[in-house]
């Protein structure tokens, strides 16, 4: 793969639940090392799109290439191998409540590597240090705050040094300060490791603070209505749906609807 080849390429993606079409003919590319943000209002299909890209759900139509591999052509074993190169932070962090934070982070290492326990512990400590949770290895998820859980979730997602990290609403449920701290951490990890970050969010601060490029989804359009640098889109876009979103403006129709 050369450096200009996209790490993710989505073409003609259509998602249907029964007779309800959620996404229609969606296509985009993600370049290596960039922070790519999928934005849009609630219910526009952001998380649905993410689940299809990582292969948790199967699209009705369309193709998804990850590192040049068409994921629809892969069997379960190949898909599992591909997923090992992908990290995912879920909206709820999805830490295993019966395990300590250290055990949560160490889990991918114990399952997918043959490293001795001493090395796994050492890597776990390093990962926790990278997300500023040093010393919390023996804590349980229930003993951590929302922001700490998100950071622990990132540490677990990055345990195997994936080339891509998907983050579903990382700021959901966090206060503005914690949310901003998380943005700084995501940016720091992206710059330090070169990991491609694909983030789903509707938080304007996150969008403007850390994204290199965005795509904006719209519920009525069932697809992408804008793509590019959010700072330029906010300044130059003449699409009222885009400007309304960036300026937190509520149209009369929306207030009535």
């Amino acid at each position: 793969m050369n450096s200009t080849e996209p790490v993710i390429k989505v073409e003609g993606l259509t998602v249907r639940y029964g007779s309800d079409t959620v996404l229609q003919d969606v296509g985009f590319e993600v370049q290596p090392g960039e922070i790519f943000v999928i934005v849009g209002g609630s219910g526009c299909g952001k998380s649905t799109l993410l689940k299809h890209v990582i292969g948790i759900e199967t699209p009705a139509k369309g193709s998804i290439w990850i590192n040049g591999t068409d994921t629809s052509a892969l069997d379960d074993v190949e898909l599992r191998t591909l997923r090992m190169g992908i990290g995912m932070l879920f909206q709820s962090s999805a830490l295993f409540g019966s395990m300590t934070i250290g055990e949560n982070v160490a889990l991918p290492l114990t399952e997918f590597t043959d490293l001795p326990m001493k090395d796994i512990e050492s890597i776990t400590r390093m990962k926790l240090g990278m997300v500023e949770l040093a010393g919390y290895d023996n804590h349980y998820p229930s003993e951590l705050s929302g922001g700490m859980k998100k950071r622990a979730g990132i540490a677990r997602a990055m345990a195997l040094d994936p080339a891509m990290l998907f983050l579903d609403e990382p700021s959901a449920g966090l206060d503005p300060v914690t949310s901003a701290e998380l943005d700084v951490l995501i940016k720091k990890l992206n710059e330090g490791t070169g990991t491609t970050m694909i983030i789903v969010t509707h938080e304007l601060e996150t969008i403007f603070n850390i994204s290199h490029r965005i795509i904006m989804l719209d519920r009525n359009a069932k697809g992408i209505i804008a793509e590019g640098d959010p700072r330029i889109l906010r300044r130059d876009s003449d699409d009222p749906r885009v400007t309304d979103f960036f300026n937190r403006r509520v149209t009369e129709k929306k207030t009535k609807g």
């Binding site: 250290g102 050492s122 400590r125 390093m126 926790l128 240090g129 990278m130 500023e132 040093a134 010393g135 919390y136 290895d137 023996n138 804590h139 003993e143 720091k188 990890l189 710059e191 330090g192 490791t193 070169g194």
Partner: peptide
Amino acid sequence: GILSLIDRDALTKPSLAP
């Protein structure tokens, strides 16, 4: 960049919860 991410103190910091 990767080297700078490693917090050396974190590698030896004792657990806050025994």
